[in-house]
Design a protein around this nucleic acid. Structure first.
Lengths: 340, 340
DNA sequence: TTGTATGCGTTATCAC
DNA sequence: GTGATAACGCATACAA
C-alpha cells in the first residue's frame, strides 16, 4: 500500500488536483459541497501530505537539528527531552546527532544538517572545537541556530547558558562561609568555556575572601572518564597534600562521586575530614551516600529555553528580520546536602 | 546566501542540468573534461544536493525514526546513542521521539513519522500500549520497523530483545544458591511484557527449587517514580513481613536503589539481613553503596543490533523481498557485587 | 557525449 | 467555483 496522493483523490472525485488542494487548505473559493466530498474522501483514505513535496515547494522542513557532545548524560538527555517535547507539540521533528566531543564529526554533522535543509539548529560545542567556520556557514546560509551550555563566546548567535562563573563563585563562597579553608578544585580540560568559567568563579571566591590561590590544588581532569578521574585525582591529592585539604569543588558531579568513592574506600570521613561540592545536580547525586551538595543546573529548563529561542529566531527570519542573537541566562542554585 | 542548485551550476558552465547531474553521479557517458569542470565548480560553490528534491524523486528519505518511552534513562539513552552513531556512519539521520509512556502520543508519533516518510522505524512500546493498529499501519505502508526491548509479541516484525525470563530466572536462581530462601519481588505494572517475563522467571526459579510462591511477597510498583516506589515498597514489605524476608529481586535498578536507600536509613544491613538484586546494570549501580548486584543489560549492544536489523530490513525491502521478521536475543549476564 | 523531456507531490498564480 | 499550468530541485529514459 502506498500513501495516497492528491492526484488520486482528485481522480477519484473527478475534480482537479488544484481544487482538492484548496479544499484541504480551507480556501474560501471552493464550494461547500466540493469541500465536503474532498474532506470525506481524504479522511476515508487516510490522506496525509507528502512531506518531501511540501519541503521542496515551501522551502522549509519543519524539522530542527540538535548536536550534542554526549547523549548518555543526565544533563544533556534532559535537555534533549525538553527540546523534543516542545518541538513535537509544535509539529516540528528533531534530528539528533552526537558529536562525541569530536570536532571533525561536529563539523561534518553541521554540513549534513545543512544539506538536509533543517529549519534551525541547537548546538552544544565539543570540548575540542576551537574554530568556527561551520557555525559561520550556518550564518551564511541564514539558518537560525542557538548555542547552548558549551558555547563559543566569539560567535554571534542566540545563546542559552548558565552563569558558570557566578554559580561556581557561589558554591565556593558557601564552602568558605562554612569554614572550609583549603579548598581544592577538580576542573575539566583547559578549553571548554564551562570549565574556564567555573575555575574563574572558584578563583574569584578565594580572592574575595583573601585566600591565596594554590595552583597545586587545582587538578585537571580531562580524559573523559569522569568517575575514574575523580578517584584518580582524589588519590593524587591525598598523596600530595595529605589530609590538609578540607574541601573540594568539582566541575561536575561525576568527578565528585568518584572522589567520594575514593574517600569512603579509604575511610576518610565526608564531610568531617573533607567536604565535596559538585556541579550539575545529576539525579544520582541525591541517591548516593553521602548525598552530594551541588549546583543545580536544570536541563529541562535549558532545553525549553533553547527551543523557544530557536522558534523565535525562525519566526523572526520568516518575517524577514535580522537575527535576534539574544542570550538567555538560566538560573542556578545551590543544593546543600550531606557532603558539605 | 541560498544553497546553489544544479540549475545554477549548469547555467554557469553553459551545459545542461542533466549533464551536471550525471557528472556528479559518476556516470561514464560524460567526457572527462566536462566532469572535471563540473566537479571543480561544485566544489568551489560548495554544492550539496537538496534533500527534499532527492526524497521526492527517489522516494526515500535517508532518515529513520526512533520512538522511545523515556529518553532520560541510562539504558535507553545508551540505545539511542548506539543507533545514532551507526546511522550517522551510514549517512542516515535519525528523528527521535519520546512517547512518554503515553499510548495516544505514541500513536500520533507513528503517524507523524509515517507522513514524514521515514525509511524505517525503531520503536520501544509504552507501558500502556495494548492495541497495535499503529504498528499494523506501518506494515500496510510497508515501512520496515523493529521493536526493541518493550515489544508486543503478537505483532509480527523484527525484534531485538533480551530473554527477560531467563535473565530473571538466573538472578533468582543465584540468590537461591547463595542460600536465600524468602525472596520478594518488586515488579512493574501488569502490562509491559518485560515485567511479565521477569516475574515469570522469578516464579519459575522458585518452583524449580521447590520454594512455594508467596503472592504477598510480590509488590507491584507502577506509578513511574521508581526510586520513591522502591522506598515505599521496601517500607511496606518490612511492615508486612518484618525481617523475615532475606532477599529482593527487583524489576529494575532504580527500584533496588530506592529499597537500599530505605534499608540503610533504617539500619537494615545489606546483604547480611537482606540481599538486593537489581536489573539493568545502570551506571549508577556500580557507584552506590553497597554496590548493586544486577542483571547486565547492555543498551549499546541492543541499539547496535536494532539498527543493523533495521538496515537489513530496509535492504530487503529494496530488493523486493518480504520482511525478514527476525528476532535477535541479546545476551545478559549476572553482575555480582556487594548487595548479595 | 550531451541535451530534452518527464515526473516525484504539492502549492500558487492565473485564466476560465 | 474550478482547473490548467508552472515551479520547487533532482534523476533518468530517451533522443539527438
Amino acid at each position: 500500500m502506498r500513501p495516497v496522493t492528491l492526484k488520486e483523490i482528485a481522480k477519484e472525485l473527478g475534480i482537479s488536483v488544484a481544487t482538492v488542494s484548496k479544499a484541504l487548505k480551507g480556501y474560501q473559493d471552493v464550494s461547500p459541497k466540493t469541500r465536503k466530498r474532498v474532506l470525506e474522501l481524504t479522511e476515508k483514505l487516510n490522506y496525509s501530505p507528502n512531506t518531501a513535496a511540501i519541503s521542496l515547494r515551501k522551502q522549509h522542513t519543519k524539522t530542527i537539528g540538535v548536536i550534542i557532545p554526549t547523549i548518555v548524560h543526565y544533563f544533556f538527555s534532559s535537555v534533549i527531552e525538553a527540546i523534543i517535547k516542545i518541538a513535537d507539540s509544535k509539529d516540528y521533528l528533531v534530528i539528533l546527532l552526537q558529536s562525541d566531543e569530536n570536532f571533525e564529526l561536529e563539523k561534518k554533522q553541521v554540513n549534513l544538517l545543512l544539506s538536509k535543509g533543517i529549519d534551525g539548529l541547537i548546538i552544544s560545542l565539543s570540548n575540542h572545537t576551537r574554530t568556527y567556520t561551520h557555525l559561520k556557514k550556518l550564518q551564511d546560509y541564514n539558518v537560525p541556530f542557538v548555542q547552548i551550555d558549551k558555547i563559543s563566546k566569539i560567535v554571534h548567535s542566540s545563546k542559552v547558558i548558565i552563569d558558570d562563573r557566578k554559580a561556581a563563585y557561589n558554591a565556593v563562597s558557601y564552602l568558605i562561609e562554612k569554614g572550609y579553608k583549603k579548598i581544592a578544585h577538580f576542573r575539566a580540560g583547559l578549553n571548554p568555556q564551562n570549565s574556564i568559567d567555573r575555575y574563574l568563579g572558584y578563583k574569584k571566591a578565594l580572592e574575595d575572601n583573601d585566600i591565596p590561590l594554590d595552583p597545586s590544588l587545582v587538578y585537571i581532569c580531562d580524559n573523559n572518564r569522569d568517575f575514574e578521574d575523580g578517584i584518580f585525582n582524589a588519590e593524587k591529592m591525598i598523596k600530595e597534600h595529605g589530609n590538609s585539604v578540607d574541601a573540594i569543588f568539582t566541575v561536575n558531579d561525576m568527578l565528585a562521586i568518584g572522589a567520594i568513592h575514593y574517600f569512603r574506600n579509604n575511610d576518610i570521613k565526608i564531610p568531617e575530614e573533607i567536604a565535596v561540592f559538585g556541579f550539575s545536580n545529576w539525579f544520582m547525586s541525591s541517591v548516593i551516600s553521602p548525598k552530594l551538595s551541588t549546583v543545580n543546573q536544570d536541563g529541562s529548563i535549558m532545553g525549553e529555553a533553547a527551543i523557544n529561542v530557536l522558534f523565535e529566531e525562525i519566526e523572526n527570519k520568516r518575517a524577514g528580520k535580522p537575527a535576534l542573537n539574544k542570550t538567555v541566562v538560566i538560573d542556578t542554585d545551590l543544593v546543600i546536602r550531606e557532603s558539605t
